[in-house]
Amino acid sequence: DLSALRVEEVQNVINAMQKILECPICLELIKEPVSTKCDHIFCKFCMLKLLNQKKGPSQCPLCKNDITKRSLQESTRFSQLVEELLKIICAFQLDTGLEYANSYNFAKKENNSPEHLKDEVSIIQSMGYRNRAKRLLQSEPENPSLQETSLSVQLSNLGTVRTLRTKQRIQPQRTSVYIELGSDSSEDTVNKATYCSVGDQELLQITPQGTRDEISLDSAKKAACEFSETDVTNTEHHQPSNNDLNTTEKRAAERHPEKYQGSSVSNLHVEPCGTNTHASSLQHENSSLLLTKDRMNVEKAEF
């Protein structure tokens, strides 16, 4: 173990290094160091905050020279020094078990990766560091076993998940096959086929009936047209017969005018059967003409 005197000496050296690497504005270890034209180094955030307070150039807090945003430059070497100082402080805390008085939040800088452990060898070769390295080497064999167990647990979990997924996939297939086998029997399929065939026959029977009705309507229309044509021909046949009657009536009127007047009046009210309204109107006109002729003949006879 380190003596108290040596611990104090190391602590004083760390404090001196820390004062050199402090920012003059925030009085902390410089984060993202930036250098000016006057070779003074500050935190990048502190300098941008200072420049944004005034429009135009501002003055350096140490030498009062003008500073602009374009004049600022990043210093990589200074950032490396800060990183190495942080590593020294971490090693000091691990070796002594004491917390550094002016320690900052170094938890963000710590890294437990194997590459980081290899890099620590180049920091300080001390008894405390050696003991700590031995402890780490002793704890390393235990870690692979834990990793193997965790991997086995994960693989077993994956296997159970896969088996569950396969079961879920197989179950719908089985149910679907069961439904297909038990849903419709052979008799049901035959009945469905016969039902479809009967429906098709009914459709075939319905369509000819409609065509037959249309044919019957067409035949009825044709018969009505033929009947009207026969009526017209009958009226045409009746007209010459009426003319013959008129000639006979004229002759009778010349011989017996008194008797014919009474008979002509009675004939006005008689309509021949089986004739249309057109034929009756023609008869009325003929009878009126005959009456006028008879009157003329009677007057001539009187004179």
Rank of each mutant, 00 (worst) to 15 (best):
K87N: 15
E214G: 14
Y260F: 03
R255M: 00
S79G: 14
M17I: 02
R130G: 06
T277A: 08
N297I: 03
P24S: 01
I88M: 07
K44E: 04
L81I: 14
S288N: 11
F42I: 02
K55N: 13
R165W: 06
S183F: 04
K64R: 15
M296I: 13
R70G: 13
E9G: 01
H256N: 09
Q138R: 02
C38F: 00
P33S: 06
P208L: 00
I206N: 01
E302G: 15
S264C: 12
T207N: 11
T248I: 03
Q138P: 04
E140A: 03
E249D: 02
E142V: 06
D1G: 05
L146W: 10
Q154H: 05
Q125E: 05
A252T: 06
Q73P: 05
K69Q: 15
D188Y: 01
H269N: 07
N52Y: 05
T160N: 10
D200G: 05
L51V: 13
I30T: 09
L291F: 10
F92V: 01
K167N: 11
L94H: 11
P33T: 08
Q239H: 05
D200V: 07
C90G: 07
G199R: 06
N105T: 06
V161A: 08
S122Y: 08
S71R: 01
E236K: 13
D213H: 13
P272Q: 05
S264Y: 12
V10L: 00
L136H: 15
Y129F: 05
M127K: 13
E142D: 12
C273R: 12
Q239K: 12
I88V: 10
D200E: 02
L164R: 10
L62I: 00
R130I: 11
L94F: 06
P144A: 14
Q261E: 02
V34G: 02
S241N: 02
S216G: 07
R165S: 01
N105S: 06
K108I: 11
E22V: 03
S186C: 15
E28K: 00
E214K: 09
K49N: 01
S241C: 07
P141L: 07
K44N: 04
V34I: 08
R6C: 01
V161M: 13
I41L: 15
L98S: 11
P114A: 09
F45I: 02
K222N: 10
P257S: 05
Q18R: 00
F92L: 00
L5P: 06
A301D: 15
N131H: 15
S79R: 08
F106S: 13
A301S: 14
L151H: 05
L268M: 04
T163P: 10
C60W: 00
N102S: 14
A220T: 10
L50H: 15
V10A: 04
V198M: 03
G274C: 12
Q205H: 09
Y260N: 01
T248S: 13
D200H: 04
A279S: 12
H116Q: 12
P114T: 07
A193T: 09
N15D: 14
K37Q: 10
I67T: 03
N143S: 08
D119E: 01
L137V: 02
E271G: 02
M127V: 07
N65Y: 04
T68N: 15
Y260C: 05
S126T: 02
T235N: 08
N143T: 09
D231Y: 01
S126I: 01
V10I: 07
S216I: 12
V7I: 10
Q154K: 13
A224T: 14
S150C: 07
L29W: 08
Y260D: 15
F42L: 01
S58L: 00
T235I: 12
V34A: 02
Q53K: 03
S75C: 15
H256P: 13
K300T: 11
L62F: 00
S152T: 11
C38G: 00
S176F: 00
L137Q: 14
L268W: 10
K300E: 10
R6G: 02
I30F: 12
N111D: 14
Y100S: 09
Q138H: 10
E83K: 03
L94I: 10
N276D: 12
N15H: 14
L86W: 08
P33L: 05
E140G: 12
V153L: 09
V190L: 03
N12T: 03
V153G: 08
Q168K: 15
H238N: 13
E299G: 05
K49E: 04
N105D: 13
E226G: 10
L203F: 10
P57H: 06
R77K: 08
C26R: 01
S139T: 11
Q18P: 01
D244Y: 06
V177I: 04
F45C: 14
I89V: 04
T166K: 11
L2V: 13
E187K: 02
V153F: 09
E8G: 07
V161L: 07
Q261K: 09
R251H: 09
A107E: 07
L217V: 11
Q73H: 10
A91S: 05
T149A: 07
S156F: 08
S287C: 06
S113Y: 04
C225W: 15
E120G: 13
D218H: 04
T248N: 10
F92I: 04
S228P: 12
P61H: 00
T248P: 15
R6L: 05
Q59E: 01
H278D: 15
P240L: 11
G159A: 10
D184G: 12
L29S: 02
A193E: 14
N102K: 07
L27Q: 01
R295K: 15
T149S: 10
T230S: 02
N157S: 10
S3F: 11
Q59R: 03
Y260H: 12
L217F: 06
N276Y: 10
C273G: 07
K192N: 05
H284L: 03
E271D: 03
S228F: 01
S152N: 11
S263R: 06
P33A: 02
S3P: 08
E271K: 09
G159E: 10
Q201K: 09
K134E: 11
C43G: 02
L268S: 15
S139R: 11
N276S: 13
F42C: 00
T36K: 00
E302Q: 15
F92Y: 12
S197C: 00
N52K: 05
A223S: 08
A16T: 02
S263I: 07
L48R: 08
L86M: 04
E258A: 04
M47K: 04
A301V: 14
S126R: 02
R70M: 03
E140V: 01
L282F: 15
K19N: 03
F78L: 15
T96I: 08
Q154E: 03
P114H: 05
